[in-house]
Simulated scan of single mutants.
Amino acid sequence: MEFIKKLTEWVIEKEEEAAKQCAIGLDTIEKQLEFLKEKKIELQKRCDKNLKELEELEKRVEKIKSIELLRCKK
């Protein structure tokens, strides 16, 4: 994972340099932005789904805890 991060950072730096020299097309940048926005949306959906699942599990464990507390009081 660290390798991919470094590689991505390197590519972005090279594209920044190319943009400063007007050597990269605006359409290329727009395509990259659109791709990143799509990936961001996908990631947000996955995170939301995982958080919902965790919340459901938390509710179930809280319920189990309540049941156990009631049993132990008697």
Rank of each mutant, 00 (worst) to 15 (best):
L36N: 04
F35Y: 03
K40Q: 09
T28N: 14
E62D: 07
E68L: 13
K31R: 14
K31L: 13
A18P: 06
L36G: 01
L43A: 09
I64T: 15
E42W: 03
E62W: 06
A19K: 04
I41P: 03
E68T: 14
N50E: 02
K59A: 08
E55I: 05
E53N: 05
L43F: 03
E13N: 15
C22R: 13
L51Y: 03
L51P: 03
K39F: 00
I64Y: 11
C47K: 12
E13W: 12
E13P: 04
F35D: 06
E13D: 15
K52F: 00
I29A: 03
K45P: 07
Q21L: 06
Q44M: 12
D48H: 05
N50V: 04
C47N: 14
S66I: 08
Q44E: 09
G25F: 11
L51M: 08
L36R: 05
E68W: 10
K39R: 01
D27H: 11
Q44F: 10
A23P: 05
E38W: 07
C47Y: 15
E68F: 08
K52P: 00
K31I: 12
K20I: 04
E55C: 05
F35C: 01
A19I: 07
C22D: 15
L57E: 13
K65C: 05
E56T: 02
K37H: 08
L26R: 14
E15Q: 13
I67R: 10
I41Q: 12
E42L: 03
K40I: 01
K39I: 03
K73F: 14
E58S: 14
G25H: 07
Q44I: 09
E38M: 12
K63I: 10
K14I: 07
D27R: 14
E53K: 04
I64F: 12
I64R: 11
E16S: 10
D27Q: 13
L26Y: 11
E17G: 15
L54E: 02
E68N: 10
L54Q: 06
K73G: 02
L69V: 10
I24Y: 00
N50A: 11
Q21P: 05
E56R: 01
K31F: 02
K31P: 08
R60P: 08
K14C: 04
E42F: 01
K65N: 07
I24M: 05
E55M: 08
E68P: 02
K20Q: 12
K65A: 11
K63R: 06
E53T: 05
G25Q: 15
C22Y: 15
K45Y: 04
L51G: 09
Q21G: 03
L54P: 03
K63F: 09
Q32C: 01
A23C: 12
K45S: 01
K31C: 08
E30T: 04
E53Q: 01
I67C: 13
E30V: 06
R60D: 00
L51A: 04
I12A: 01
C22T: 11
I41E: 08
V11E: 07
K39C: 00
E55D: 12
K59S: 10
E34N: 15
E34H: 15
I64S: 14
S66R: 09
K20G: 01
K59Q: 10
L57R: 06
E62M: 04
S66C: 10
Q44Y: 11
S66Y: 09
E15I: 13
K39A: 00
L43K: 11
E15P: 02
L57T: 14
